[in-house]
Design a binder for these strands. Structure first.
Lengths: 227, 227, 227, 227
DNA sequence: AATGAATGAGGGTTCATTCAT
DNA sequence: CATGAATGAACCCTCATTCAT
């Protein structure tokens, strides 16, 4: 195992190629040779850097999820209030997905395809993300900003909502912005967690419930539902 | 093509066998011959009832999801308040999963493995569920019971939270009851949707945030995280 | 085994259906259920009349070839000269094929698909046809009408030429008449067998070799060649 | 994709193996793994060189037929008279078959099994052979050596006779030489095409029609007829 | 380290045939 | 006799992985 810059580069090229390839055709449909082609290496070279196809998916997730958690941890340093922290999580989650559509597709769709072995390997970084969310909730409770909710269940709600919103967004044909949902999502979280609510940021929201009704009047046809 | 009770029975036996088989080894790892063996029919018989392996998964979901939605719609008939309706959704969702662990595994894990074709086929029943949730939210808003939240996003929160809680429960080794989370989940939904909160049903909850801390103190090790 | 008229009818319907089915999609591609459908009987019924799929092909050939030989034998009764007899063979062969395109396709194309077992079974009727041709040649030699050619090889030439002309005709897109080749074919046979040649029946043939040249100038493109 | 001698060799080994395998058990009965075994390669290797099983049959024919036509064209260069040219065609056709019994079996029996797709692919080389025969006939007519016969029909007679003689020979149990029929075949062709006949080469032929009678006296039992 | 030709296990699906009704 | 649902053997091909160069 050499760790030269060159090797590091090839490792990254394969990972980048894999993201694109998985996102395009799906993990199971994706042939290793396709990744090799996109990465500009020979098929066999893949196996100098990865144990097998499964390993690519796992390392991919670990790598990107690790980056994501590092980012979010850094951003949380500067956030004092629980509201600011929640907004940071929401926005970073959404922005990360929005800026990496391919990665988002893999994360939301392909990773769930994997069998038990893969999901087990994926466990660690995901657990880290869960822990991070739970820490925000717990400290919020301790500081009296949040109601004494069940931390695990509250985390399930937060992660589940962000995750579902992302999947919805990927499945939707109309490419509305995911980030634009952040404020409404924060509003819901505030209520769920018993955080004293700020006045609604969007003017006219309270005054115009019809708009909301209209939107949902579309009945989610073709958009909200996972296609 | 006969449509006798006998034929109906064989169709169901194959579907039941498929649920067990997919839950046990996963869709991709599952051989058609395994389903046939479990169903007590010949391999070829499968293809008298289903177009192909994929079709089994699709029909399976459509069938069971259809039943589920029918159940939930029936129960909602007798519920007048939005709170009661939300509780019905939560409990029916959780009970359904808890009573059909194999089905839950397929729904939560295997169905997400499927490629675009399968997910498209799955779309209709899932959309129907989304619509149902959104109808409860919308009517709650119209009746003044809920704050004028964005219906689509609120639905994402509700479905996402239920879905994530279920996945968590399946992945967890310790088989705590999923249904027992219903009340806390309802409590969070109430806050999120601006529903006037009932006093916490569980005595001591507010008084004992430590319990929550304990639970999360486990840091989700091997439980909360998707293994 | 009953031999009522009804049974006889069903036997024939299956055979007729098989001719059409084999001609349309080929023996190997043809499913037994297709024959059953065309014959208006159940799949299983086929097996009351035939041992298996192979048996259908064999009986089909035996039946039709038997009819054909009976026809040709009857016609030969009234033909005294070897020339007339040869013409009878040529015309009956061509007319038979032309009037039963489906049968011709099976005979020329599908029957040659069969494995050794089928060809062995087909042997008897084909041998009978060979014998018939050889008898005409032999008696022609004995009566001094033909040169003392090798009977077997002469038969190979006659059957081979008729067979190849038929295959050519089937493969050709342009549906020129096969029967119209009879006279030229007879002319060639006369020469080959040393039969005193009649003056060319087609006026201008000898005088206009260019026409022939023109025709062949087409180089057989798309017609003569087996497509 | 390397095109080294090594690769060329493997291509040829597979082709050779296929000829033997097809000849032995027939195209449809022949498993790809049998070809692989005979060729000394893995099953999957076949698919590096051929698109599928069908492709093996097609390429096989194109390859060998191409060689055959090249051979015959070369030999025809040195033949001035139409008689010599006809003899070249007859002898090369017969010798080629006799020296490659397996190939002959495939050509005469298996290739006719193929469905439309295969026969279409086979068209080109076969047409080339037809064209070659027709060129000999046409130039013979132009040079006044042959009667002004219909070129296409004459070609059908020549190819049909050679083809039928070959099939006969393959189906026969007694392995008389095919090549030994060349002279009699030429004799018949001479007559058919109006070529001034040479005196019969085999002494006693005219004098001993009994030999012919004897042969045919066998009534083709098990020999002449396609078994 | 890099290559890519070679490997060969593995499985979904078809369809001729059977047999209970 | 007739049916047609059920059977299950059989096989082509893919593609992740290896290894000689």
């Amino acid at each position: 195992m050499i760790l030269t810059a060159q090797r590091e580069d090839k490792f990254r090229r394969i990972l980048d190629a894999a993201v694109e390839a998985f996102a395009e055709v799906g993990y199971h449909q994706c042939q290793v040779s396709k990744i090799a082609r996109l990465a500009g290496v020979a098929d066999g070279t893949i196996y100098l850097y990865f144990k097998n196809k499964e390993d690519i998916l796992i390392r991919l997730f670990q790598e990107r999820m690790g980056d994501f958690i590092r980012d979010i941890r850094n951003l949380l340093q500067g956030r004092e209030t629980t509201r600011a922290r929640l907004m940071t999580i929401i926005e970073t989650h959404f922005r990360n997905m929005e800026e990496n559509l391919s990665l988002a597709k893999v994360t939301q769709l392909e990773l769930r395809q994997s069998d038990l072995k893969i999901r087990t390997a994926i466990n660690a970084p995901l657990k880290e993300y869960f822990r991070l969310i739970e820490e925000v909730i717990r400290s919020g409770i301790e500081r009296g900003e949040l109601a004494p909710v069940d931390v695990r269940i509250a985390r399930q709600l937060i992660f589940g909502a962000l995750d579902e919103a992302t999947t919805d967004w990927i499945m939707a044909r109309t490419k509305r912005s995911l980030l634009s949902e952040s404020e409404e999502m924060l509003y819901l979280f505030e209520g769920a967690l018993g955080l004293a609510r700020e006045p609604r940021p969007r003017a006219g929201r309270g005054a115009n419930p019809q708009r909301t009704a209209d939107v949902s009047g579309k009945m989610n046809a073709g958009e909200g539902a996972r296609a």
